[in-house]
Amino acid sequence: MPLLKDGKIVNDSWLYLDDSIALPKVGAIVVSLARWQRDRAALMARTDSVGVRLTADQSPEQIKEDLTELALVAIEFPAFTNGRGYSYARLLHRYGFTGEIRAVGNVLRDQYGNMKRCGFNALEVKSGETEAHWQATVSNFSAPYQVAADGAEPIMSLRQQRMAATGG
């Protein structure tokens, strides 16, 4: 699957490793939570990066202590209407995770903006979709109402700054 990463469509250098397949010696791999919990030692002994793929009912709380070992967390969207992953990304961000947070599965272009705001920095796109397709759905809101994971200044603080500046 191609990926949209930081606004560009790129080839995915990560391998999703099925639980039944033996660990390869080299190359970045993404494993299931069960595999991570089972083969933790072996996975950490490898030199190349490892990531964990969470299903929609696996909260990142379960890997909170492991995040320094991981370079990527993939969050599955079984349906584009299942929005659990947005909160999972917020949690990962709050835990201080600095690796890639990737949305995989059933993701719509129109969800791109919200996903970015919640801390996702990569999304799996359908084959044939171009950067232009994705750019077309990016909405131009000058400022949001909420604080989220993207660091955008919310309207409430912009108002505060303005009040401070005008002394009123």
Partner: peptide
């Protein structure tokens, strides 16, 4: 309003 996290509850 358009809370990014709570749009697909």
């Amino acid at each position: 309003t358009l809370h990014p996290e709570f749009t697909y509850l």
